[in-house]
C-alpha cells in the first residue's frame, strides 16, 4: 500500500510538472472551444457571444437564482475580485451568469439578481435546447431534483467559472476553492493578454 501511494504521488508529481506554471487557477487553453452561444438577455432580447466578446474578458458561470449556496458564494467572490482589479480594468471584464432554471428564473428575477452584484454582471438564460447546446459545448451539465411539497427543487450545475480572453478563447477554469489572490492575478493576466 505504501509503495502504491508513493507511486501514485510520483505520477501526480509528474503530471503536475507539465502544467502551465504562470497561471494560478486551472489553465485550459486549447482544451475547449471558443465562446459561442445564442441566449436571451435580461431584457428578453436574443443575444449571441458577439454582443459580449468585443475586447472584453468574459467570465461564464452557470447557476440559478434560487440557488442556496454555490451561486451566491461564487458571484460574491467574483464581485470581490472585480473590486480588487487595478484601476480601469473593471470595464474590460464581464461576468455572464447563465440561469439553467428558465422555468423559475423570469427576466425580472434574473435582472434583480445580477444587479445586486453590480453592473458588470449580466444575466442570461434560454430555452432548454439553447442551454443544452451551450452546456455540452463546455462539457458541463445541469439537472433537476424532485420538487418538494412547496414545489421547490434543487438544480445541479457546474461549479466552475470559465474565463475567456478578449478574443473569446477559453483559457481558465476557476474553481470555488481558488483563492481570491490567485483569481485576481489570473484575470489581470487575461486582460493584459
Amino acid at each position: 500500500m505504501k509503495a502504491f501511494v508513493l507511486a501514485w504521488a510520483l505520477v501526480l508529481l509528474m503530471a503536475g510538472c507539465s502544467d502551465q506554471t504562470d497561471w494560478q487557477t486551472r489553465y485550459i487553453g486549447g482544451l475547449m472551444p471558443e465562446l459561442q452561444f445564442t441566449l436571451t438577455d435580461e431584457n428578453g432580447k436574443t443575444v449571441t457571444e458577439a454582443q459580449y466578446a468585443n475586447n472584453t474578458v468574459n467570465l461564464l458561470f452557470f447557476g440559478y437564482t434560487s440557488c442556496p449556496d454555490v451561486c451566491p458564494v461564487t458571484l460574491a467572490q467574483m464581485r470581490q475580485v472585480l473590486d480588487r482589479l487595478p484601476e480601469g480594468m473593471v470595464g474590460k471584464v464581464r461576468v455572464l451568469f447563465v440561469s439553467v432554471d428558465p422555468q423559475r428564473d423570469d427576466l425580472e428575477s434574473l435582472r434583480r439578481y445580477t444587479d445586486f452584484f453590480g453592473d458588470r454582471f449580466v444575466g442570461l438564460t434560454g430555452s432548454r435546447e439553447q442551454l443544452d447546446t451551450l452546456t455540452s459545448r463546455y462539457r458541463t451539465t445541469y439537472g433537476y431534483g424532485e420538487p418538494d411539497a412547496k414545489g421547490n427543487y434543487v438544480v445541479t450545475h457546474g461549479s466552475a467559472v470559465y474565463g475567456f480572453d478578449a478574443a473569446g478563447r477559453a483559457q481558465l477554469l476557476i474553481r470555488n476553492d481558488d483563492s481570491p489572490d490567485a483569481i485576481v492575478a489570473d484575470i489581470v493576466q487575461l486582460v493584459q493578454g
Binding site: 452546456t135 462539457r139 451539465t141 439537472g143 450545475h157 477554469l173
Partner: peptide, 26 residues
C-alpha cells in the same frame, strides 16, 4: 483491487471534475 479499494474507501474527493462540470442528477 488496490486501485478500486483506494478510490472507494478514500475520504477525499479525488475527481473534482464531476463537481466542476455538474452531475447528471443530484
Amino acid at each position: 483491487v488496490v486501485l478500486g479499494a483506494y478510490i472507494a474507501l478514500s475520504r477525499q474527493e479525488l475527481f473534482e471534475i464531476y463537481a466542476i462540470c455538474g452531475r447528471a442528477w443530484p
